[in-house]
């Protein structure tokens, strides 16, 4: 339970955000916070792979792209009903995850990293080649999706995103403690033993890969609605890298990690880029520093020190 406290505090803080923004920052700040929450959803799903399964996927942003492009193409073609869009998104992301997962999960370690990277890049180039939907330049959405009026309320989208974040955070927390999660965690340490105990590890991992993919694709749908713009850059490998950074920064395999990581990442990006246009000159070395010297991420700061 203790491990959940930082995330719960963050949720309370986030829920009050639209109100706070009235006094400071306005819609710029709520937009930023929405982006952070969407990244948190994507990072939660990636942590299911990295933290729970020990599978370092470097192509997770592909699913963001699937969700965003499904939304963008559907709306451009005149389908604006959110439920329909979500249905199509889930179907496509399940299919993509099953095919790429079945191939990548036959490998381990570095090969797995490279293959997921390659599949992500494959999707990136595919989106770039969609000349009817903006190609390299991306696609502007002149109309948002319709969700039975929910988006029309003031801050409707904000609270829908927050609601999804909390729901997914809660469900993934359950999953980790449930039978399914125990199998994944144990297989991360000793998959041979799990096989000889009677668990077909491949099937469990593939299922986790599909679940993670679907959640990230849902985050992609949210991005498209929030930004009203989709572009191939959403699924570029740098985005996948960002998601890994968020997971590690927050503390992988830790209950509150991805949520804290996403908030910190967006905050860091924002404050560094307000300092200098070339903020990556600072962020790059900072990242190296974090990897070399800071273990356990932000979430570990809240844990009781072990003797």
């Amino acid at each position: 339970m203790r491990a959940a406290i930082p995330a719960l505090i963050a949720f309370v803080f986030l829920a009050a955000m639209p109100l706070l923004a009235e006094f400071w920052g306005g819609s710029y700040v709520t937009g930023l916070v929405m982006r952070a929450m969407i990244l948190a959803i994507a990072a939660l799903s990636l942590d299911l792979l990295i933290g729970t399964c020990g599978l370092v996927s470097f192509g997770h942003a592909a699913f963001l792209g699937i969700g965003a492009y499904t939304t963008g193409i559907a709306i451009t073609e005149g389908t604006t009903d959110l439920a329909t869009i979500l249905g199509i998104t889930i179907a496509i992301s399940v299919l993509f995850a099953l095919v790429t997962g079945a191939i990548s999960l036959r490998t381990h370690g570095v090969t797995f990293i490279m293959i997921t990277l390659a599949f992500g890049q494959m999707l990136f180039f595919t989106f770039s080649a969609l000349s009817a939907y903006g190609g390299d330049d991306g696609l502007t959405l002149w109309e948002g999706a319709h969700a039975y009026g929910a988006f029309e309320f003031e801050h409707g989208l904000f609270y829908i995103i927050l609601g999804m974040l909390i729901t997914i955070w809660f469900l993934l927390g359950c999953l980790r403690e449930a039978r399914f999660g125990r199998v994944l965690l144990a297989a991360k340490e000793n998959s041979t033993r799990m096989e000889t105990l009677g668990y077909g590890v491949f099937g469990y991992r593939l299922t986790a890969y599909v679940i993670a993919g679907v959640i990230a694709a849902l985050a992609g749908v949210l991005i498209a609605n929030e930004a009203e713009f989709v572009s191939p850059a959403l699924s570029a490998w740098q985005r996948s890298g960002d998601l890994i950074i968020i997971v590690v920064l927050g503390g992988m395999g830790r209950r509150s990690g991805p949520v804290l990581g996403a908030l910190a990442f967006v905050g860091l990006e924002e404050s560094l880029s307000s300092l200098t246009h070339d903020w990556r000159l600072i962020f790059g070395p900072l990242l190296i520093f974090i990897v070399l010297f800071a273990k356990g991420g932000l979430a570990s700061l809240f844990e009781r020190r072990q003797a």
Binding site: A178, R179, G181, E189, M194, G198, Y204
Partner: peptide, 26 residues
């Protein structure tokens, strides 16, 4: 990294029906 009991429970879990269960704490 799992406790002694969790190790044995993992072995037992394989004999107690499907492990594709996602919600109830094991």
């Amino acid at each position: 990294s799992m406790t002694l009991f969790e190790n044995v429970a993992l072995a037992a879990q394989a004999r107690c029906g499907s492990s594709y269960r996602f919600f109830r704490p094991a």
